[in-house]
Design a protein around this nucleic acid. Structure first.
Lengths: 190, 190, 190, 190
DNA sequence: TATGAATGAGGTTTCATTCAT
DNA sequence: AATGAATGAAACCTCATTCAT
């Protein structure tokens, strides 16, 4: 019952994620979503009020998974801010490069929509997560930064752009390594 | 005549820029564009093949202005890579914060659209412009960087994110100064 | 069992009567009917073939009750056509004003529905009942009428309109009394 | 321009009238209306907000024509209330029997719809028109009636029912003559 | 050249009906 | 017998595009 229901909701979200990643909002047809999720079109409306709500739910769902993965990564290097930061960059870049879904997340933001607040909050969660690592590093004397909140945003944006517009002739590994170095340079105490 | 024609095209592009900045693609109606530009709806089709082409033309138009402004800035500090880079960051951030149109540029990219190539090319122009400054700095021994192409992308992405998700309680000036410092740290020779 | 079954059928018919009286056919949802009858939606289909049959069953049900009530009234004044007619008017008006369901009976008739014949027959039953009273009166020399079939229809229509569009500032009693007088005038021998 | 526009609106209303008279509301498709009116489906929405508004407009339109015809008839027998009343009955019955559209008017009334007020007002207009004739007759000493408002409603309802459920084997003429006699009986001073 | 009324393909959504439980 | 989640046909409606003026 509840199990099955969860399954169906998940199937719809996954199908939506795939399709919205491939096509702009207005080109994704609910017929496609329904048949990709192997459910009737009407079923979509049992789980989501309309196309927009489905879209938002899909975005939040993907983001929550990302945040969870990053938090798990932090736990693995409890007392090493440098390693934590490196982990965040690796995972973030990895996710973005692997999952085209995430592209859209970062690329698109429906503006001035009521439920958009949620989206801002999600992003803030990410920023604060990074900021926390920087703060931690500062306290430990490993980093030096006058404005960790801004830096957290830099890091997120930096990785996003790197993922979306990767320069040719570079392996993912090389890019990550270089990015990490750049960030650490920026945070290094003189 | 020709004057009048140019005017109308410009009016349409400006109206489109304003509206596309406020709403996602599928919520901007050509009725709105036409009436905001004070032209008949049919007139849009005299200047642009369809909605998508209008959107692309509007994006390119905005971007070209940006590139032009940045190039002009570079000329002002011919032999000072640090100042050039600082200028780029200032102007880029300024533009993004002033012109909401530009937000959309960075925020949204219609995927797998035929003419998307143009967009990529435009962005590459920006990346190469920044990359040139870094290269120049490396040659002059002011900067040190193993992968200027990647760094150029970082800088663009960093400013974008800063503009879109600015942390509260910071003036634009403070943020720009901090960003410049962060970037210069990353590029500074040990 | 059988008891329970009858109960459920009745519950459904009552719920349907209430809802169809309040809303036009296409606005009454089977979800509403089911929940108002406190049964599952699927259960409706155990008792009625589809929405249309449910609607018809509901109408017939209401009408049969009406006819039965009128017939009972006639029996009470076996040999007094005037009293019989007055009784019909009283009961008919009373019913229509009390039971909004009946409104719909008169107000709406789904045209060219296969089973609409039944509805015509029901109405004819009513007309014939009234016609019988008039005939009886004519035979007794109390009434005078060249076309009792038409007059029977007048009376029914008269009461219906009176009920649906009652003039303000009149009690039900006053209206009934006046209607009875009007009809008797029409039927009075010179 | 304006001419053409009026034409199109009229064509739509006429097509709608025909179809709504033949089928219940929910069985009339806007595709049918559009093609019967020889316009595109979208054009319907240029003239009417939605299906319901089109339906209401169509009803009002028909009713206004009816009222106009009746008023014209009254003018023809300025000082003869009996003839005026007879004229109303003739025209009303004639209309209802000729134009199946009108059937629906009287048969159906969408309940508790906001714009239904208009419909009530239209009906009141009809009632008041009849009532005026009765009042006039009373003042002239030709009629006698304690409640002309109620009687006006009787007359309307009487004709409606007669038209909808006409007894077999009667010509329209016979029925009208009989109805007029019945009504005049009811209104005759002792 | 400029317009905006008209179009209709195709989108989103609803809801009567079915069927696995 | 009873349910209500699931279905998908078919409804309403939108809006990019066309075209007569």
């Amino acid at each position: 019952m509840a199990r099955n229901k969860e399954d169906k909701r998940k199937r719809i979200l996954d199908a939506a994620a795939k399709l919205f990643a491939e096509q702009p909002f207005h080109k994704v047809l609910l017929d496609q979503v329904a048949s990709a999720a192997r459910v009737g079109k009407g079923t979509l409306y049992l789980y989501f009020k309309n196309k927009e709500e489905l879209y938002i739910a899909m975005r939040l769902n993907g983001f929550q998974k990302l945040i969870a993965a990053l938090e798990q990564g932090l736990a693995e290097h409890e007392n090493d801010p440098e390693a934590q930061l490196a982990g965040i960059i690796d995972r973030l870049a990895g996710r973005l490069l692997e999952h085209p879904i995430m592209f859209k997340f970062w690329r698109e933001a429906i503006i001035r929509m009521p439920s958009n607040m949620d989206w801002q909050e999600q992003l803030n969660e990410l920023f604060e997560l990074i900021e926390g690592v920087i703060q931690n590093g500062i306290e430990k004397g490993v980093f030096k930064d006058a404005n960790p909140a801004a830096t957290a945003r830099y890091i997120a944006g930096l990785i996003r752009t790197l993922s979306m517009f990767r320069p040719e002739d570079n392996t993912t590994d090389e890019l990550c390594r270089h990015a990490k170095q750049f960030v650490l340079n920026g945070l290094q105490a003189a």
